[in-house]
Amino acid sequence: MIDFLVIGGGIAGLSTGARLSEHGHVVVLEAEEALGYHTSGRSAALFEKGYGPPSVKALNAASEAHLVSNGYLSPRGLMLIGGHDQREVFQQDRKDLRLQEISLKDAMARVPILNPHTAGFAAVSTAAFDIDTDRMLQDFARVIRANGGAVRTRRKVTAIEKEGHWIVQAGDTHEAHNLVNAAGAWVDKVATMAGITPIGIEPRRRSMARLPAPAGHDLTGWPLILGAGESWYAKPDAGKLLVSPCEADPSFPHDAYADDMVLAEGLARYEAMVTEPVTRVETNWAGLRSFSPDGTLVLGPDPADPSFIWSAAQGGYGFQTAPAASQLVADLVTGSQSDLDATNVAALKPVRFCA
């Protein structure tokens, strides 16, 4: 009998499975051929401790030591850019992200394609880092295997029932004492299959385009550039530039793809702040980030059936919160004391959605 059967092989499922493997036999089921295929494999992969609502910021802070000690972080930096007519929203973003305002001249020295005729305000932080997301996924999977567990791909769940314990059909039959719902955009579907009341977690699409380096610039030292109001962002990646419209359009669980019109609008917002036009899009894609009704993660046992465990609604915060979020799930399952304060724990538990 499996102690913890985890549905979902993205960062939520693998990190939670790794923590729980210290307390019992874990098996992870991933529907696709590869781990992290959907949202986890399409992440912007940035750690910014001040990004997100209060409970997410608490998870960010609690995750930092793990990310640093395992060598997952490398310097990137963050630059916020506001247009001449965006002073108010720029200042609000600057305060929320705890950035230092700099002159436009200084900003252009760091990112020479900024357009001084349209960009009016700039702020920066050096405390933003790229995350080695693939190594994180593989390391958590290795922990599960090292503790006697298994990670199985091509295991799409087709049926769930409970007869004293969980019986899950996914190509073959899996029986478990506890079921961990880490299915990303599919978490409410999994809950419904299991006879658990869904929370109302909504998948939202975010698109991305890969561009050649603008005007052949060396992008090595450029920060991630964020448009005020989170209206677009641009991030250097292996000598190319990733540009996103930063949309959060409601969707449904599926293998997402970019919306051409939304992508074009986002590229136009980016182009408005730079001197180099977009002449070619090399490739584009999209991912589904899942959000709970209050915008923060859902972690821990379901109040109606504690053997059904949520690791869900990571939104855009999955990798940067994973070390602490997965530890909180394990603490709540085992009855251990969490290092997070009681207010933030309450803000993350699924019981908050009970009437």
Rank of each mutant, 00 (worst) to 15 (best):
M1L: 14
I2H: 12
G9I: 03
L14Y: 04
L20Y: 01
H25N: 12
E48Y: 06
P54W: 05
A58Y: 07
G71S: 13
S74V: 12
M79S: 08
I81Q: 02
Q86R: 14
V89Q: 11
Q91I: 04
D93A: 10
L99D: 06
Q100W: 05
Q100M: 09
P112V: 10
A119W: 00
A122T: 09
S125C: 10
A128V: 13
I144E: 03
G149D: 07
R152H: 15
R152D: 14
R152Y: 15
R155F: 02
K156G: 13
G164V: 00
G171F: 08
D172W: 15
N178I: 02
L179R: 03
G184P: 00
V187T: 14
K189P: 00
V190P: 03
G195W: 08
G216Y: 09
H217A: 12
G221S: 15
G227K: 08
E230T: 08
K235D: 10
G239Q: 14
K240F: 03
S244N: 01
C246I: 11
D249A: 08
D255W: 02
A258D: 04
D260P: 05
E265V: 10
V274L: 11
V274I: 15
T275Q: 12
V281F: 12
T283Y: 08
W285T: 06
V298T: 13
D302Q: 10
P306H: 14
A312F: 07
G318H: 05
Q320T: 07
A324V: 05
A324W: 04
T334I: 07
S336A: 12
D341W: 13
N344D: 15
A347V: 06
L348S: 03
L348N: 04
K349F: 00
